[in-house]
Every structure is written in structure tokens, then in C-alpha cells.
Design a protein around this nucleic acid. Structure first.
Length: 235
DNA sequence: ATCGCATTTCAAGTTACCTCA
DNA sequence: TTTGAGGTAACTTGAAATGCG
């Protein structure tokens, strides 16, 4: 199809350039809506030249347009239209790319959110188990009474815990990490009294298959502010 | 200074043709 | 051979900018 160009009917709209063939007469002219059009694509060389011009500047000065038209054997009007269409294509490509980027970001965040949700569930289950265990170990203890019901509350997504429970959880975590770290509440709860106890709890956590390293992540990704509360709670 | 008009250019949307699977 | 989709040159429309009397 290279080499063929445009042939418009004499019925050219007022103020418009008449676009005509430079090399060949119209072979396949068709009549439609007052227009006789022999439309074909620009040649590879023409496109190449237009593209390289577009790379340097997306808008053409009138002088440059005329010069380019002369070089390529086209009408200045054709050059102008080509640049208009090219800008439109460029813009839609930009929008497409932006959409792609946004979608990728969204997908990443969504999958992060999902895995955090699962992790949260695991931790809540873990919390429940620990609460039950505390209750069993220190059944008559006043403090364990305080923990009563907390585990049940924690089974829902809507975690409703008080600072005491949070402090216990925090102590428990410290016990896991340091094995013998003393807890501010040790006199009341008895948790963290010895390295043995800490180790025992560690074994328990292994039993429920919840990695404690994930708690670290919680501090980073906590989205509902629970851990902020936990960390800032006074005890 | 500013108003009105003509002209030009642009973006956005549309039309019509061509190519190809 | 027909047909539908996709690409693209050219057109239409409305708005903004500019120049001139």
C-alpha cells in the first residue's frame, strides 16, 4: 500500500485544504456522504520521519510543518492532522500506562492486606489459646479472672481488649524473645517468672504453628491502631 | 483601553476506510 | 468469500488564543 495517497472530491469543505494524490490517480475511489475518498496509510519512510519529528517536538511550528510537508510530499494539513492524531495516541498510551501502574500497586496492596488479615487471624487464635492456658494454669488467680472472657472477645475480628491483656501479651512476647525477661506484671500474672516458663510458652507457640517473627510485622503494618494502643498503654 | 470579528490551533470525539485473522 | 475487530487518516465541534480595525 505504500506510495498511494489521498484523493478527495471537489466537495472540499470551505476553509479546508484539498487533499489529493501526489503519485497515482485514485483507483478505488468510493463515494460516501459527499466524499470520494481514496485513503491509504503513509509510507514507512513518511511515518519514520514524522515519528522522529514527533520525538523532538510534539507540536509543530507552522514553518516546520510546511518544511516537513515539502520533504514528505504531503499537504501541511496532513502533517497537522497526523500530529494531532499522534498526540491523541500518545495520551491514551500514557493513560493506559498509568492505569497499569495503579492497578499493579493496588494488587500488591490487596495481596499484602490479605496476608496480613490471615496473620491477624492466626494471632488472635494464638491469643485465645494462651488465654485459655493462663486460665488453666492459674485458675483461682484473681488476675486470670481478669483475663476471663478476653479470649472469647478476641476470637472475633473486632478485637476488644484492655490494656491489662495487652500488657500480658507484650510480656509474653518479651518472654519469647528473651526467655527470661522480667515483666512489669510478673508479680501479678506470674508470667515470665523464669526462663523455663518462657521456653514452655515458646514450645506452645510452636504447637500452634504461628511464627512469632510475624509479630514484628504487626508493628509495621498495624492498620487498625490496635498495636499503637498496645505499645502506648500505660502499665 | 476595549470591543467585536475573523482566523488559527488544539483536544476530544467521530467517521470511514483499510488490513488481517 | 464474508465478517468483525483494530488501526488510523481525516473530519467535526467547541473552546481558547491571537491579531486587527
Amino acid at each position: 500500500m505504500e506510495g498511494r495517497e489521498y484523493m478527495y472530491s471537489p466537495a472540499v469543505p470551505e476553509g479546508r485544504y484539498e487533499i489529493f494524490t501526489c503519485q497515482q490517480p485514485p483507483q478505488t475511489a468510493r463515494k460516501k456522504k459527499n466524499k470520494i475518498v481514496n485513503k491509504s496509510r503513509f509510507s514507512a519512510e513518511q511515518i519514520k520521519s514524522l515519528e522522529s519529528s514527533f520525538e523532538t517536538e510534539t507540536r509543530l511550528e507552522p514553518r516546520k510543518k510546511v518544511q516537513l510537508a515539502r520533504e514528505l510530499g504531503l499537504q501541511p494539513r496532513q502533517i497537522a492532522i497526523w500530529f494531532q492524531n499522534r498526540r491523541a495516541r500518545w495520551k491514551s498510551k500514557q493513560i493506559e500506562n498509568e492505569y497499569k501502574t495503579l492497578k499493579d500497586n493496588y494488587d500488591n496492596l490487596a495481596s499484602q492486606f490479605e496476608s496480613l488479615k490471615k496473620e491477624k487471624q492466626s494471632l488472635l487464635i494464638q491469643l485465645q489459646i494462651l488465654g485459655d492456658l493462663l486460665e488453666k494454669t492459674h485458675g483461682g488467680n484473681e488476675d486470670s479472672k481478669g483475663l476471663e472472657g478476653k479470649s472469647a472477645v478476641c476470637t472475633s475480628n473486632n478485637v476488644n481488649t484492655n490494656s491489662e491483656t495487652k500488657a500480658k501479651l507484650s510480656c509474653f512476647q518479651k518472654g519469647m524473645e528473651g526467655s527470661a525477661v522480667m515483666c512489669p506484671h510478673e508479680d501479678k500474672t506470674g508470667i515470665g517468672n523464669s526462663a523455663e516458663e518462657g521456653q514452655g510458652l515458646l514450645n506452645m507457640t510452636e504447637h500452634v504453628h504461628v511464627p512469632f517473627a510475624s509479630l514484628e510485622k504487626w508493628y509495621t503494618y498495624d492498620s487498625c491502631g490496635l498495636l499503637d494502643q498496645l505499645c502506648s498503654s500505660s502499665y
